[in-house]
Amino acid sequence: MTTPRTGSRAEQARRSEARILDAAARAFFADGYERTTIRGIASAAGVESGLVMHYFGSKQELFRRVLEAAPTPEIAAEPGQAAEQILANLADRLTDEPVESLSMFRSMLTNPEAADAVSAAMARYRTQIADAIPAEDADLRSALISAVILGVMVSRHLSKSDDLADAEPEHIIRLLRPCMVSLTADHDDPAPRTAASECRTHPPEH
Results as ranks from 00 to 15, higher is better:
21 L>F: 10
90 L>P: 04
28 F>K: 08
53 M>K: 09
66 V>H: 05
66 V>R: 06
199 C>F: 00
123 A>S: 12
114 A>L: 08
144 L>V: 07
69 A>W: 07
39 R>I: 05
99 V>A: 12
101 S>V: 10
138 A>C: 08
90 L>D: 02
114 A>K: 07
62 L>S: 06
69 A>S: 13
137 D>P: 09
175 L>V: 14
136 E>F: 12
181 V>T: 15
160 K>L: 15
97 E>C: 02
34 E>S: 11
33 Y>M: 02
201 T>S: 02
130 A>V: 04
72 T>I: 15
181 V>C: 11
174 R>Y: 10
32 G>L: 02
144 L>I: 06
77 A>S: 12
105 F>D: 13
203 P>V: 07
13 A>S: 05
109 L>Q: 13
33 Y>H: 05
139 D>S: 01
175 L>S: 14
111 N>A: 05
204 P>C: 04
111 N>Q: 05
12 Q>T: 04
158 L>H: 11
6 T>M: 09
196 A>G: 06
129 I>H: 03
23 A>Y: 04
57 G>M: 00
175 L>W: 13
63 F>H: 11
20 I>H: 01
205 E>T: 11
78 E>F: 11
132 A>C: 11
119 S>C: 08
194 T>R: 08
116 D>K: 11
202 H>C: 12
86 I>G: 01
190 P>W: 12
124 R>K: 10
30 A>D: 15
106 R>C: 00
192 P>D: 01
65 R>M: 05
137 D>A: 12
202 H>I: 14
84 E>N: 13
203 P>N: 10
25 A>Q: 09
22 D>C: 07
52 V>F: 06
35 R>N: 15
166 D>W: 15
110 T>A: 12
109 L>E: 14
138 A>Y: 06
44 A>E: 06
138 A>P: 04
127 T>Q: 00
21 L>A: 09
180 M>K: 10
69 A>L: 09
45 A>R: 05
134 P>R: 15
45 A>T: 04
76 A>N: 14
175 L>N: 13
85 Q>P: 01
28 F>V: 07
151 G>I: 01
206 H>W: 09
155 S>M: 03
114 A>T: 10
98 P>A: 05
23 A>G: 04
19 R>D: 12
176 L>A: 05
92 D>P: 07
81 Q>P: 03
96 D>S: 07
25 A>N: 02
1 M>A: 08
168 E>Q: 10
126 R>L: 03
194 T>Q: 04
147 A>R: 00
40 G>D: 03
24 A>I: 03
123 A>D: 13
137 D>Q: 12
135 A>H: 07
98 P>L: 02
155 S>K: 01
1 M>R: 06
182 S>K: 11
